[in-house]
């Protein structure tokens, strides 16, 4: 058990380190209004609808860091939550795109879309709706 705790602690340290190395931001179309952390968490855990959500690949460290920072949930929890929503047809899961560049491109093209990328990746084509420091 102690070993598991060490591993968990190490994992959290690594996540924290990864997040520090590159802060995350939630981005939207230029016409979108800013969002709170709670709003983003509700959207990405399927508690509220109304935006087209974009996701990063499961293997990308940014994905785990994003969900941890926004909701405190790890990826298996997120997956269990979404399996509940998907298999009742309640909500559509976020659409997975290959990388931050693809997320940016999709957000710039559709006013109803939001995504998350590294802060350093932001440019004039998108608007920062929430800065996750």
């Amino acid at each position: 058990m102690k070993k598991t705790l060490y591993i968990v602690a190490l994992g959290q340290l690594l996540l924290a380190a990864a997040a520090h190395a590159d802060d995350l931001v939630v981005i939207g179309n230029a016409a979108s209004s800013p969002l709170t952390k709670e709003q983003v968490s509700d959207l990405y855990l399927g508690k509220s609808q109304g935006m087209k959500l974009l996701d990063q690949p499961a293997a990308a460290p940014i994905k785990a860091a994003f969900y941890q920072q926004v909701s405190g949930h790890d990826l298996s929890q997120v997956k269990a939550t979404w399996s509940r929503l998907i298999f009742t047809g309640k909500a559509q899961p976020p659409k997975e795109l290959p990388d931050s560049a693809a997320v940016k491109k999709a957000v710039a093209a559709d006013a109803k879309t939001i995504g998350y990328v590294e802060k350093g990746a932001v440019d004039g084509s998108v608007k920062v709706l929430l800065d996750l420091k």
């Binding site: 997956k79 269990a80 939550t81 399996s83 509940r84 298999f87 009742t88 309640k90």
Partner: peptide
């Protein structure tokens, strides 16, 4: 009720 049969969800 809705995800009762989806073991993975619970």
């Amino acid at each position: 009720s809705d995800s009762l049969d989806v073991g993975y969800a619970n």
